[in-house]
Design a binder for these strands. Structure first.
Lengths: 138, 138
DNA sequence: TACTTATTGAAAATGATTTTCAATTTCAAA
DNA sequence: TTTGAAATTGAAAATCATTTTCAATAAGTA
């Protein structure tokens, strides 16, 4: 279970396990679309009404630092987070419902080499994201 | 000259040509790296000390609306703007100095088809961005 | 040149995020 | 267990970027 893994990770890195962290981790680990801090707060508060927005920010910060979640960039904003991809994976986002799928297997080596030659840049990273409609929203 | 083109575009779309707009357009049209509103403000103010930050925001808003500039997403933030690419081009950013190069010629059709089949998504857009070091910064 | 209206910069308002702080909770050590 | 130091909490205040408001000014048409 992702939730347990994340909690273990937090603990192994010297962070204490608290009710606030459990609530946030539980919610974000199970989400299939990217959530903003405020969305996490509002949803998590239903399970744990004492939860404060500040703790949501602080927990997300730690999860990001441990590479357990990643920020999702979208035309409408870049504050939302989703479980991080394992290894070299990219995101595919549904423009309607926000559902996120991961994919791998992009082979951009040829492209990157030709760009490097043309521009003189030494390329070290690439960032690829696809947008579309998920099976449900078509 | 890009500056003249942008000013023409503003005028053709019913916007007046003012000192504030000329200053901002002149600066952004000539920039080789993405600039935040505050950076534009600070640089432009040297040429036009009367310029207000609000006018920078408003001018950038109009330039974006006319597709003359585009927002650049980076790990450090997504508020910076650069001249928009013509046609289907992507960005290559220097991680050291921020210098931006455009490139085209990505052929992701094969990849996108196989992803579509695997995930059931109907893919309609893609974002590709490369990061590295420009010739000067290597 | 006159005049309507868009545009301006400054100040106030907003909204998201961060910091501060006293009270509480965690967890390791006794 | 119990204890106690240190981390964590939520609320309130502070901060920072962006947007709105507004009276004064400037653009461009008549």
């Amino acid at each position: 279970m992702t939730t347990e893994l994340w909690l273990d990770q937090l603990q192994e890195n010297g962070y204490r396990l608290t009710a606030a962290r459990r609530t946030v981790v539980n919610l974000v680990a199970g989400a299939s679309r990217a959530l903003t801090p405020l969305e996490v707060f509002e949803k998590a508060r239903k399970k744990n009404p004492a939860l404060g927005l500040v703790s949501v920010y602080r927990t997300l910060e730690k999860l990001e630092e441990l590479n357990l979640i990643q920020r999702v960039h979208q035309p409408g904003g870049c504050q939302a987070f989703i479980a991080a991809s394992r290894g070299h994976e990219h995101l595919l986002l549904c423009k309607n419902c926000g559902e996120v799928a991961f994919f791998e297997g992009d082979d951009l080596d040829g492209l990157i080499q030709s760009i490097s030659k043309k521009t003189g840049y030494k390329v070290s990273e690439h960032w690829l994201q696809l947008f579309g409609l998920c099976a449900n929203c078509q």
